[in-house]
Design a protein around this nucleic acid. Sequence first.
DNA 1: TTGTACGCGTTATCAC
DNA 2: GTGATAACGCGTACAA
Lengths: 342, 342
Amino acid sequence: MASSPPTIRDVAKRAQVGVATVSRVLNNSPNVTPATRALVMKAIEELGFRPNAVARQLTRKTRLHNIGVITQLFLSYRSFAHRLRGVQLALSDYADKYELVLYTVSSLDHYAERLAYIANHRLIEGLVIVDLDLDEGQKQMLHNSGIPFVGINHFRDRDWPCIGADNREGARVATQYLIDLGHRDIGYLGDTFESSYEFITGRERFESFWQTLHANEIPIQMGFTRFGEHDYDEALELSRDLLSQPKRPTAIFAMSDMQALACIAAAREMGLHVPEDLSVIGYDDLEIAYHTGLTTVRQHLEMNGTIALKTLIDRIHGEEHTPETLPPPEVIARQTTRRLDP
Amino acid sequence: MASSPPTIRDVAKRAQVGVATVSRVLNNSPNVTPATRALVMKAIEELGFRPNAVARQLTRKTRLHNIGVITQLFLSYRSFAHRLRGVQLALSDYADKYELVLYTVSSLDHYAERLAYIANHRLIEGLVIVDLDLDEGQKQMLHNSGIPFVGINHFRDRDWPCIGADNREGARVATQYLIDLGHRDIGYLGDTFESSYEFITGRERFESFWQTLHANEIPIQMGFTRFGEHDYDEALELSRDLLSQPKRPTAIFAMSDMQALACIAAAREMGLHVPEDLSVIGYDDLEIAYHTGLTTVRQHLEMNGTIALKTLIDRIHGEEHTPETLPPPEVIARQTTRRLDP
DNA sequence: TTGTACGCGTTATCAC
DNA sequence: GTGATAACGCGTACAA
């Protein structure tokens, strides 16, 4: 008979005192003799009593002010840390009024389960959904729960607020940048479309890459494209394979900074110099891109998190004003790309 | 007269219905006619009513199961992300029994204030303190609150549980590694001792560096040491200064991977080749070290987070069994160090 | 110094 | 379908 956990009433009974005394001990009020205090402590110990935080809050009339952030298991995408930092920064403007609760999911089923939990318990006042989509049912569920929510991602044309940079435009400027440097044999390294939760990102970037080549009347060479999991080691393998062909691309567009770094590492292994023999451009502008001199596409990750959180807070307060918008993605030229020698 | 927020009783009164009906509407029970539902919704709207999550939990008899993590403003130390990831990973073993609440502080005063809040409200069942120390009063306060806590850091000889790798040993193996490669002119790049919360780390690593040189009968050259804020750009500046001297060190021990990368960048700017002209070893073994081929000291950051969380959960359950221990720090040799040419 | 009784906002269980 | 009313576990006047 695993009964319900002990309450202060149980403790009081066992210690032969009133509930108020137990409460006083718990809140270490001075008005209690050491003797009875010891008595109560003993009872607490024996029963394994732990005060119920919920009831405590209720009498104290303090409401919960939690903001939830839900995402894939932490940091599988490196960009997540940058976005979360933006959320934190924005949150710190509200002077500790809100706590941040982090939910991480390991699969789509798990995601669905957590969303249901969140909607059911309503322990948070608002939810930030990072790099994950909502289906119609999930959207309705959240809506019915009365919890405002915003997305941080690149989904467009959704009927719920998503703040994120335009993948197509980002891939376009990256590709055009390489073309403008004189490159014609341009490779692509990115995620498979099926693999991840965030399949839309990979698809959009690759399609835009493709279209930009087409718009510049450059023939597509499928032998210069490689797709795999969003993983450094896998990107390394793919890059080795890509670069060991008899005919190599002179430039590569990688759909993330991490994959770009893997590509550069593979090139160096093979004795190729970057950017002399091979130009590489990444995507994200992580801190690491700055540290390694990687040319990349800046998508304002931190600002993305900040704007998303502000939008959410506005919605919690019932203000539906037009959100700040994110600047368009832009190429940050550093040391891993250069003009193709004629 | 900013009175207390409206309750469902207020809503019921205004809508001319019973509280039970309001509750039904809130939980979208089918047993309510559209007419009355609309009536209630209207009242809710007009009063700006938001259900009280706390009271809700109380009747549902669901306790809160939150684990708090408190640290400096997110990611100022890059190692934090790795440790947090370990915490998350360990937490996922408990099948969503616990939520993770992230507290970030921007100063020591802010830290003290948050600790007091945590002890007062007791909304969490346990606390992980990352890279921050506790003074005697704070320790007592937490203790009195009954909230178990563990530290993730390098403090030794504290009378509260801290899980972290030995800085002195880490710095020793790093320094000895360089010495064993034949280096004698060894520079040091690290944090000032006063600057950060975590001043102990910098001090311990530098002292151990110093002692290791001494133990090998190598004279210390203060001209080869530089101290600054824990910041990439500052490390870059310091490295430029350090390396532009007429007589340069042949190897440098940087107290973090980030500072090591800055040092390498500075060296490259000046036309120096790493490791041919200069060996550089970092500290942390961040993911980025793997990606950039940086020789470094592995301190098992992720495992650190995992063990700390497990220890905390054990303490919450009243189990005081000896915690798993972290393996000692070890040198991970990659491509930024090499034997000094005779 | 200690015990009793009531209130906190919501949900569940009954009658109606 | 809807409306009273009793829990839920703790804090706290107030009384003793």
